[in-house]
Amino acid sequence: MKKSVILSILSVFLITIFLGGCGSKDQTTLNVYNWGDYIDSSVIKQFEKETGIKVNYDTFATNEEMYVKINKGNASYDIAIPSDYMIEKMIKEGLVEKIDFNNIPNYQYIEDRFKNLEFDPTNEYSVPYMWGTLGILYNKKMVDEPVDSWDILWNPKYEKQILMLDSQRDSLAVALKKLNYSMNSTNDAELEAAKNALIEQRPLVLAYVGDEVKDKMIGEEAALAVVWGGDAVTMHRENPDLEYVIPKEGTNLFVDSIVIPSTAKHKAEAEKFIDFLCRTDIAFKNTDYIGYSTPHMEARKQLDPELANSPIAYPEPEDLENAEIFIDLGTYIEQYNRVWTEIKSH
């Protein structure tokens, strides 16, 4: 979160200075809405230089935040990069537009296993950007037993050494999976059990964090944390004592994809931008910077072999056997909201 806040403040500054400086108003501005710290910023500059289209870049920290801003706010974004279940919800509610894939020739490089996924079955609305898993990151120096199950996050031995995600669906997914339920459960009793598990876990948790988990784990402030695989790659690079595991009960497999919101004013430029992101050199740059797993086959080939074959970033298919992709829960999400508030206010 820290980075995204600073980045957004900076970007507002830069844009003001830039606009004030050149004073030209006829230039097209493309409004891009992405996760914090989820692009190599030189890519944006390169796009501006190559096409002459200005990019106005905003960031969000959760899918829900992005949804509220696109649905209720007056902000009109031309590009957004939400995750699977949120795209499903936005398609259902008519908040995203169909993409003309004739304008995205580089789409051919996307691996087939990431096309036509459940959230966009005919793949008309979204272009996969990054994917990854949710798992446990632990510090070898502080955890001496084998880590292979979500249960370790409930082990009193690690009191005040556990970092959880301050994110409703992810934290509930951890609890549901620990109890061997589906993370898309719409069963009241199962959800209640997950709630009680998380309340029981509260005294052991040091903090519920967002992006600052990276600083905390690298600085050895905690022993265990729930993190996304891509972040684990970055953290392992900075502190080799940090190891990442996908628990045996299964995990969340997520796919963040590029969409064009229906309020977009520059559809042609947006498609140009999507195609640009799918260009091999650009996809490589982004993957190399972000550390998440790319669905782009050519970009993956160009990566440092150590990363391209890393079980953290590119887990073997058998590790993903129990993995689930989040699906949109419709109105049942209100129960998740209520349960999460109850956990946090307990």
Binding site: D166, R202, L206, Y208, K344, S345
Partner: peptide, 9 residues
């Protein structure tokens, strides 16, 4: 959120 670690709403 920052100093309370998201523990207490």
């Amino acid at each position: 959120r920052l100093l309370g670690g998201g523990h207490y709403y």
